[in-house]
Design a protein around this nucleic acid. Structure first.
Lengths: 214, 214
DNA sequence: ATGCGACTAAGGGGTAACCCTTAGTTTTAG
DNA sequence: CTAAAACTAAGGGTTACCCCTTAGTCGCAT
């Protein structure tokens, strides 16, 4: 007996495409929604084996549905898919134990691989995203950040705004030489690589975390 | 007669805090929810003058609620607030014509200013975010990006990984001089400033958008 | 009082990323 | 077939960032 699946996609065309691929994989598409809330209700009602959910939907995102389905202890396996490689959404989906995570652009191949995995009771995530998540171990360490002195933090914030040493020296009322000293001390304290611009890259990537601290 | 307001905040403590501030501003808090969906239903039912919505909520984010309220033509003025200064969420909220946008850390002052503005039928957004949005005229423009040639896009991706000109030349099998030429052409096509590292900064900030394109 | 940490500053030198221009070769489109 | 793009490469120069080291002043705590 073919497995049942419900699709939720904001974009009707993309949804139809998914439906076609799933049918070609021998699945029984029993629902196709463009609205998150309706998809959620339908999943609760029909409890299909799988649900394929777009992230970008008005009302209720795929992630929202995933969370609520998990909370209700429904055993439908949830596959999330997105347009973009936003690592934070992927992280959330992983934490909520999504059963699959696909990228739209690789829909065909990803779907095949994912369905195969799900049938073996395995999870399947787009390998590009897994790799990306792995690489992003430049994670913010508040312990290291806390070792910075006040002046160093001020300089760091300037760096995060891509200010030059000269600009920083003017804003902070210190000489350019002093700014350079601070820069070096910051890099050392944060154990950054000796690559060029390593501090700038770190500052930009961790801006959100310290831009509002202190 | 005091204006009515409904609050939605994932975090009960933060919600209580908001409630206290709003009361001190003479508002009538008629609802306090920790769940997006319930808050949404309550707003539909009671149609208060204002709604104050947290972005981080399970089920339905403040943005989701904003969108659905607008779609239903309910005249409740929506104030969104967030913990972080994520510019993309702010942008979305602006596009959906949120009536207010606050940052949690400045809750007290922001709320006062915002309510005052709303009473004059004006919108109010946290000035820090407005400034940030303004500064980020480095915003991603797919039109401009589409003007880049294939080789230029390849080089841009390398830049976004903080690869040096030498490293790029080795990976792309071209001379360092050629990489430099590409870099300059990219900068010109994207209208980037002549600041040092402007390309690197742009590449890092827009990585998400082009990292998986083509 | 002394000694540590923070902050300041500088000398002297290296490399990477930018600036401007010119120009040859290939590919593609009219 | 020819002209416009795209891709390649280089000459020659400036600036900014980064390296290492030394060193003075200030405030605070043992």
């Amino acid at each position: 007996m073919p497995k049942k699946i419900i699709i939720a996609d904001d974009h009707p065309i993309s949804g139809k495409g998914m439906e076609a691929i799933l049918k070609s994989l021998g699945l029984n598409v029993i629902g196709l929604h463009t609205n998150g809330l309706r998809a959620f209700n339908d999943i609760c009602l029909q409890k299909p084996e799988y649900a394929l959910l777009d992230m970008q939907m008005p009302g209720m995102s795929g992630l929202d549905i995933l969370e609520k389905i998990r909370a209700k202890n429904i055993k439908t396996k949830i596959i999330i898919y997105t347009m973009f490689t936003d690592i934070s959404i992927f992280k959330q989906a992983k934490e909520l134990h999504a059963d699959g995570y696909l990228l739209k652009e690789f829909a065909t191949d990803d779907l095949k691989a994912c369905i195969r995995a799900l049938e073996k009771n395995e999870r399947w995530y787009n390998p590009k995203l897994l790799e990306k998540l792995n690489k992003s171990k430049t994670a913010f360490s508040s312990e290291l950040y806390n070792e910075l002195t006040l002046k160093e933090r001020a300089v760091l914030k300037c760096v995060a705004n891509n200010m030059s040493t000269k600009e920083i020296s003017l804003e902070q009322f210190i000489s350019e030489r002093t700014v350079e000293t601070h820069r070096r001390n910051i890099r050392n304290k944060l154990n950054l690589s000796k690559k060029n611009n390593a501090l700038l890259v770190w500052a930009l990537e961790n801006k959100e975390f310290f831009s509002l601290m202190d």
